[in-house]
């Protein structure tokens, strides 16, 4: 469904991605690993048009999406969830959901029902300012927000970064629940989590794609993954 082909990305004159290609089929979870500064965030941002690429092409469902704006891509089902776990902190949890439901033209009740089904703890938090949530709750809110209106492809940037291990379990549970329902490219350093969910793993190093594993069996072997980090 998504195909990134020989893409170069620059920040000013500095090249951050070199000749990157990537392939994703409907319903698959692709994970992206790599050290700090490898270019993982840059690649996700390029796919959702927050950054533009110099060469190469990006197609989604056989359409060239390179020139489309981020807002439009989000409406067509490609949603990026940033690394910084920034929610709309001045709004309540409910209002965060409301904006997502407004954008996706889904009713607010339906949206809230869905959110509570995914994460019942939100029930008592709906009228709290989202800025008061814990890191894990913020990440879950971000993912739920992105799930409103049945997206096709989620681009999730380091969902478990900086979270305590109990909360990582919550995020893991949510990702597992989503698997098969939606396609995703997930940047993740937690190899244990990667090995349990990945259909594909891409390894980036200094802006180059150094390894691609595209069968689930190999993805499940953590030592395989570690070797390339």
């Amino acid at each position: 469904m998504l195909s990134v082909d020989s893409v170069d990305v620059f920040y000013g004159h500095a090249q951050a991605l070199h000749n990157i290609s990537l392939e994703l089929k409907q319903g698959e979870f692709a994970f992206m690993v790599g050290r700090n500064g490898a270019g993982k965030t840059t690649l996700l941002k390029t796919i959702c048009s927050l950054l533009s690429c110099k060469n190469g092409s990006i197609t989604f469902e056989n359409k060239d999406i390179q020139k489309l704006r981020t807002e439009l891509l989000a409406q067509q089902g490609i949603r990026y969830i940033a690394q910084d776990k920034k929610v709309f902190s001045g709004l309540t949890v409910k209002e965060n959901l409301q904006l997502a439901s407004f954008a996706a033209k889904v009713s607010l009740t339906e949206t809230i029902d869905m959110a509570l089904e995914i994460y019942p703890e939100f029930k008592d938090l709906l009228n709290q300012k989202a800025g008061m949530l814990s890191g894990g709750q913020k990440e879950i809110l971000l993912i739920v927000r992105a799930l409103i209106g049945k997206p096709k492809l989620l681009l999730i940037d380091e969902p478990t970064e900086g979270l305590a291990s109990i909360v990582i379990k919550d995020v893991f549970r949510l990702l597992k629940m989503m698997k098969g329902e939606v396609s995703a490219i997930i940047v993740e350093q937690n190899l244990k989590l990667v090995s349990q969910l990945a259909d594909r793993v891409y390894t980036l190093r200094e802006g180059h794609m150094v390894k691609e594993i595209s069968n689930t069996k190999e993805c499940a072997i953590m030592e395989e993954l570690e070797a390339y980090l």
Partner: peptide
Amino acid sequence: VAALDDSTGVRCLGI
């Protein structure tokens, strides 16, 4: 108000 916090987040919802 949301954009004051996180304008990228607003765009990524499709608004």
